[in-house]
Every structure is written in structure tokens, then in C-alpha cells.
């Protein structure tokens, strides 16, 4: 699997990212690093805890990272959740749960695509 194919799988825009970062190997490096990124798990925890402010911050960060890496699909759902959580309310709005599910779905898609890409790299051609 090439990295372009990986991007296709996760619903991302490789061409965009390639323009932004100095080299393909760097793109690859950061894509792999995404697997270690904590924002998604932080988001889930915050949502569980009912902490709106934290959830907002985590969603916001996830959105930013997705934007940087060109993960358009994840960017969209994370963005939607971010906007919903932006309003400074005491508790998490009810609609947030549904949006969270979308984020979870897109996140899983993204991560599995990256993992598949990694595995295909390890396999001898």
C-alpha cells in the first residue's frame, strides 16, 4: 500500500498535505505519529466525565491535528463536535453524544487505514 492509497482509504487529501510538508517521508513520519496522538482518547474521557470544557479542548485539538495532516473526514466530524461544545455551558449538550459517535467512527477508519499501511510496509515485497 502506498501512502496515497492509505489517504484514500481514510478519506484524506494527500495532495494537500504533500504541498504543506517538505517531503513525503515527513508526511509518512507524522501520519505514523498520529497513532500516538492522545487527543481522541482525551476527548472520550472528557465526554464520559461530562467535562464540557475539557471535551471542547480535546475536540478542538483533534480537529487541528486532522487539519494539519489532511484527514478531511475526521476533520469534518471533529469540527462539528467542536462547534457544538464551544458554547460555554455547564454540561455537555445532548446532541453531542451523536456527534461523538461519528467522530469515533471516522477515527477508527483513519487509524485502521494507517495500521494497514504500516503492515504493508513491513511485509517483504
Amino acid at each position: 500500500m502506498t501512502i496515497q492509497e492509505c489517504y484514500q482509504k481514510l478519506g484524506g487529501e494527500f495532495a494537500q498535505v504533500e504541498k504543506r510538508l517538505p517531503s513525503v517521508s515527513l508526511v509518512r513520519k507524522f501520519v505514523i505519529k498520529f497513532l500516538d496522538d492522545a487527543s481522541f482518547s482525551e476527548l472520550c474521557h472528557a465526554m464520559q466525565d461530562g467535562n464540557r470544557a475539557e471535551a471542547f479542548r480535546a475536540a478542538h485539538t483533534l480537529k487541528g491535528v486532522s487539519a494539519n495532516l489532511g484527514f478531511s473526514r475526521l476533520l469534518t466530524s471533529a469540527g462539528a463536535l467542536t462547534e457544538l461544545l464551544r458554547a460555554e455551558t455547564e454540561t455537555i449538550p445532548e446532541d453531542a453524544a451523536a456527534l461523538l459517535e461519528e467522530v469515533k467512527r471516522d477515527y477508527e477508519l483513519t487509524v485502521s487505514a494507517i495500521r494497514a499501511y504500516l503492515e504493508s510496509e513491513d511485509q517483504p515485497k
Binding site: 505519529k33 492522545a38 487541528g64 495532516l69
Partner: peptide
């Protein structure tokens, strides 16, 4: 920047 990935990307951009 608190997010590691963002920090890494930024760092990469600037390190040249």
C-alpha cells in the same frame, strides 16, 4: 503547544 503531533510538525517546519 500542548499537542505533541502539532509540536512535531511545527518543529519540523521551522528546524530548517
Amino acid at each position: 503547544e500542548d499537542n505533541e503531533l502539532n509540536r512535531a510538525i511545527l518543529g519540523e517546519i521551522l528546524s530548517s
